[in-house]
Design a binder for these strands. Structure first.
Length: 482
RNA sequence: GGGGCCGUAGGGUAGCUUGGCCCAUCCUGCGGGCUUUGGGAGCCCGUGACCCGGGUUCAAAUCCCGGCGGCCCCA
């Protein structure tokens, strides 16, 4: 009691993760198609809370919500050469209608650029239409050949967020990327998730992009998980899909485009990063139940603990909290374990002693600490404690992330760091693809890219690329990734 | 692309080598009853499974062949 354990969480993360998803009621992975899972009510409620925040941010920043069809004609899909090359071996094809083969085959969208952009070319006419900013949250399909993993690597991404924008020039597109980063930062704070941003190397950018940024978090087993991406396409897609606008002086110019993407990996990150051996720990911002009240009856007690519990619940609800009173006829200890597993950030226990003394016991999910508060201070103490929990989750995760980033100068040192296959290594790099790929191979890790913004990416004076010995231009990040 | 392992109730498992004692074991879950409630109580009753197809045999969860599905390792 009162002790946070993270042994299984850290040492047997895969088992921990699968078990939690199932027992906490997030998803049911028994659906008979590989890589496709069923969302359960509790998991969906958490995801909806995350999406509510994203939608509010989209509204705040002037994005409109749209909804495109899931099917894309082969002819549209093939317009941007790099894009098709990047996705062709992982799209699902619709080739028949009934028994007859289709004249033009259709793909199930793996992402929506090629669905959207022919429409963009119809919609965007003049400079007055720019910047043009839309988003949607839909399911997309990718035939993953590597191991699928619920919420992380799936063949149907159920909650794929994608914002697409078009701009008059490169500078405005760059402003959009900055805005995306700011939105992402606010979202990450909302989820209490510390992260890093890297600019992807040329060989790993999004197919068709001019450059790609990726946001990563640190998983309990020391691997990184990408939970957000921002791309500047420049005019690559505009040329392929003929998206032009008329300037103030009457010329026709191709637009500059960006995208910003996220998915249910956000939920995977929240569950993984904040959890412990007892289960999930949800940030109060997204917990479907923020406070659970467990009445502790005594057979011969003269007081009504249930009435007392309901009364506190009502007061908390009026103050704006999401509260549940657990009146099930099972023992309290069982209820504690139940709600801990489901990550409810704060529990209130009320027994006859509390009713008589006008008190309540508060138990924090993050630290597993318990303390007694006065009845009349409950609302205030709950508010304060929930805030502290959120802050503590963020700080704990930040410490974990930062403790897993190491700077080294040589391949040998990097290998030493990776001996336990954990963490992120930053190593000087000349910037050539050849040396980058060589390091990936030597380290058995992926290059995430270089720190972003660019100022942070520069290698300190005098550092040399450990592969070719030339002067290092950047510090490159390597990690084992999901 | 190459190699290996595995499919038994909702979840986890025993049984398989050496076929019969298996209308299949135990834990958990689920429904009901009694009793209890400050950290997973107990007892009783009930519920529910051998991946699919073919073969061998007097007899198949067990052996053989094929299919489907899952997992792991290597490139």
């Amino acid at each position: 009691m009162g002790k946070v354990r993270r042994e299984k969480w850290s040492n047997e993360f895969s088992e921990w993760y699968n078990e939690i998803l199932e027992t906490a009621g997030i998803i049911d992975k028994r659906y008979p198609v590989k890589g496709m899972n069923v969302w359960l009510p509790y998991g969906l409620r958490i995801m909806r809370n995350i999406e509510a925040f994203i939608r509010a941010e989209m509204e705040r920043t002037g994005h409109d919500e749209v909804l495109f069809p899931a099917l894309i004609p082969e002819t549209e899909f093939q317009k941007e050469a790099e894009h098709i090359k990047g996705f062709e071996d992982e799209v699902y094809w619709v080739t028949h209608a009934g028994l007859d083969p289709l004249d033009v085959r259709l793909i199930l969208r793996p992402t929506s650029e090629t669905a959207m952009y022919s429409m963009f070319s119809l919609w965007i006419r003049s400079h007055a239409d720019l910047p043009f900013k839309v988003y949607q949250i839909v399911n997309v399909y990718r035939y993953e050949t590597k191991h699928t993993r619920p919420l992380i690597r799936v063949r149907e991404i159920s909650r794929f967020f994608e914002a697409h924008t078009a701009h008059a020039d490169f500078e405005d597109a760059e402003r959009q990327v900055k805005e995306d980063l700011e939105i992402f930062d606010r979202l990450a704070k909302f989820l209490a998730l510390p992260y890093i941003i890297s600019k992807r190397p040329e060989w790993d950018k999004f197919p068709g992009a001019y450059y790609s940024l990726g946001a990563e978090i640190m998983m309990p087993d020391g691997r990184t998980l990408q939970i957000g991406t921002m791309h500047n396409y420049r005019q690559n897609f505009a040329r392929a899909y003929d998206i032009k606008y008329e300037t103030e002086t009457g010329e026709h110019e191709y637009v500059h485009q960006t995208t910003f993407g996220m998915s249910e990996r956000l939920l995977a990150a929240v569950i993984s990063v904040h959890g412990d051996d007892n289960g999930m720990v949800l940030p109060p911002t997204i917990a479907p139940i923020q406070v659970v009240i467990v009445p502790i009856p005594k057979k011969d007690a003269s007081v009504d603990v249930f009435a007392y519990a309901r009364e506190i619940a009502e007061e908390l609800r009026k103050a704006g909290f999401r509260v549940h009173v657990d009146e099930r006829d099972i023992r309290p200890g069982r209820k504690y374990y139940d709600w801990e597993l489901r990550g409810v950030p704060l529990r209130i226990e009320v027994g006859p002693r509390d009713v008589e003394g006008r008190k309540a016991v508060i138990a924090r999910r993050d630290t597993m600490e318990k303390f007694t508060v006065e009845r009349e201070n409950v609302v205030e103490d709950v508010r304060k404690t929930l805030d502290e929990i959120h802050e503590n989750l963020y700080n704990r995760a930040k410490e974990f992330l930062e403790g897993h980033i190491k700077r080294v100068d040589t391949i040998e040192e990097a290998k030493e760091v990776f001996e336990d296959r954990r963490g992120i290594v930053e190593i000087p790099w000349c910037g050539s693809e050849e040396c980058g790929l060589k390091m990936e191979e030597e380290l058995d890790a992926k290059m995430l890219g270089v720190p972003y913004p660019e100022e942070k990416a520069k290698a300190p004076e005098g550092k040399r690329c450990p592969v070719c010995g030339r002067e290092a231009k950047f510090m490159a990040r390597f990690a084992r990734t999901y």
